[in-house]
Design a binder for these strands. Structure first.
Lengths: 330, 330
DNA sequence: TTGTAGGCGTTATCAC
DNA sequence: GTGATAACGCCTACAA
């Protein structure tokens, strides 16, 4: 079913069909009707390939993430897809987790889209440079600013400080940070610096390897069994924190009575954990939505200088960080 | 950067460049080198649009889902993307939640892919028929078989019966099913029929509207406050069940002492809920992986008759359904 | 108001 | 072995 068949059926040229469908250029009312009738009868939809080739654009955005396991990426993705869709752009996904030859995959993706959202440090730095050089429109979420691309992140330092201050108010004196920063300049690293700037030498960092429930569980078990058990465990994110809660329960420790635990992100499970998890809420949906809009600006050329934004976050105090005189429920 | 520039630089024709790059047809060793050198220097990558147009295929799959809020869709999507990627196909996503003009979106998607995975009943029936008529390769996940498309689902009835039997073994006599079937012939409907076939008149269905924590919470609260409080609540899925747990806690009811609760899916939060949620595990990742493979068969033409498969599921007994002499931990 | 024709970037079929 | 050249499906000056 091509535009030629529609044209033949309607007794006009393909140019007229195109004009009618796109509303570009003038078309006589009668002609228009004939065309629409033919389109209807033949159930014609312009080939996306033809359109893209002629228009010189894909009307599609890419998104690169490590995994979709936790709720974080899914939420951001959802916000991204929603806005992209509003703007008439499809979204092509690419997960890098456990993938070999990531470079090839990214390059292939780059050939299918007008621009892409890349999470944190999922793409090796040299490749990033090459993409920038190739003129691919890029917006990074959760990484430090770099030249030639937009970056978008949510605030870490201030909320980390606020969280640390709250824990200190509980009177705790020995702390541990679970989920040590793997790469510098990423979200977790900022959280670590934030809490440390408040707690100083009273907090020690513990590496978990990955940011998963399992890793959190394992590291927390070791930590809680040790001689100098910390009074409070600040976790890099909610999933690690859920692992810590599990470890505490298995060891017969009361949370927050024996040990306090906090997370980061405010994923669904945080609210349903027992005790409910004190954490920091970040606007995941909004992050995705903004990324889509930023990309659109870059692609349409409304803007051509990279922008770098930081979205606000806020601690959500629940039960896992300690007892509160007046119950706070969120 | 087009194939013409490469050809010019290498001093050959575009046909030779194409042959060299694709390994189709013979190319003299010397010529080949010249071409590869030019390609290297110009950093040339064939335009995906050009290739697709000429090849007559997109090398891309679509996927239509309502939302990505819970872990269920994300997991299936992940399995789907992984296999699709292995098979050299990109994945274009489309969320229908809160979207108007779904028909147009789906049609646009259909024009960008060689085939698509559609969840349950996210697409109106007439449109499904039209897609089938248009020859779009389709595989449905979680819906009843229909002619002209593959369907893939996980088992519901048997596991529902097993779950119901387990609850009956606990000695309970009054039950409620939370999350009444909205459409017949879907997963939840089968679960409902399964448990009812075992519990008979002892179980009553309660509509929750949506399958979310909030809806589950609301419906459970009403139910547990009522005169004839059920002894056990079988929920349509884990999220509704989490809502029920929350409701019970707020009302000061002990789970499973006062009321037992079960879910379905075995999402991450199920294991971390307190008490840990008894549920039914379904192979979400596998569902997605199989869908991608089925689609590939359909697209490449290895198979042209629709296939309909059902994947096995199994109850996961934890703490929320009642006390067990020998603790089972999963 | 409508039609012709060139271009978008490949692949693949023929001749040579 | 290699090179024209016709698709592939559409958009859009430009001409009529």
């Amino acid at each position: 079913m091509t535009i030629y068949e529609v044209a033949r059926r309607a007794g006009v040229s393909i140019a007229t069909v195109s004009r009618t469908l796109r509303g570009t250029g003038p078309v006589a009312a009668k002609t228009r009707e004939k065309v629409l009738k033919a389109v209807e009868e033949l159930n014609f939809t312009p080939s996306r390939l033809g359109v893209s080739l002629a228009e010189g654009r894909h009307a599609a955005n890419g998104v690169v993430f490590p995994d979709l396991a936790g709720p974080y990426y899914a939420e951001v993705l959802l916000g991204y897809e929603e806005v992209a869709s509003e703007l008439g752009r499809s979204v092509i996904i690419l997960s890098t987790k456990g993938r070999t030859r990531v470079g090839d995959l990214i390059k292939d993706l780059a050939g299918r889209v007008d621009g892409m959202l890349i999470f944190g440090h999922t793409v090796p730095e040299p490749l990033v440079a090459e993409l920038v050089r190739l003129g691919v429109r890029l917006v990074f979420v959760s990484r430090d600013p770099l030249p030639g691309a937009d970056t978008l992140r949510s605030e870490n330092t201030a909320s980390a400080r606020a969280l640390a201050a709250h824990l200190a108010d509980h009177g705790y004196e020995r702390f541990a940070f679970l989920g040590a920063p793997l790469t510098s300049h990423d979200d977790v690293d900022e959280r670590w610096r934030g809490v440390r700037s408040v707690l100083g030498g009273a907090i020690e960092a513990v590496d978990t390897g990955h940011y998963t429930v399992e890793c959190g569980h394992e590291a927390a078990t070791k930590l809680l069994k040790g001689r100098d058990r910390p009074r409070a465990i600040v976790c890099s994110d909610d999933e690690v924190a859920l692992g810590a809660l599990l470890a505490a329960e298995e060891l017969g420790l009361d949370v927050p009575g024996d040990v306090a635990v906090t997370g980061w992100d405010d994923i669904m499970a945080a609210r349903h954990a027992r005790p409910a998890l004190t954490t920091v809420r970040q606007p995941m949906r909004e992050l995705g939505a903004r990324a889509a809009r930023a990309l659109d600006e870059l692609i349409t050329g409304v803007r051509d200088t990279p922008s770098h934004h930081t979205l606000a976050t806020a601690p959500v105090i629940r039960a896992s960080c300690g007892h509160h005189p007046q119950e706070v429920r969120t």
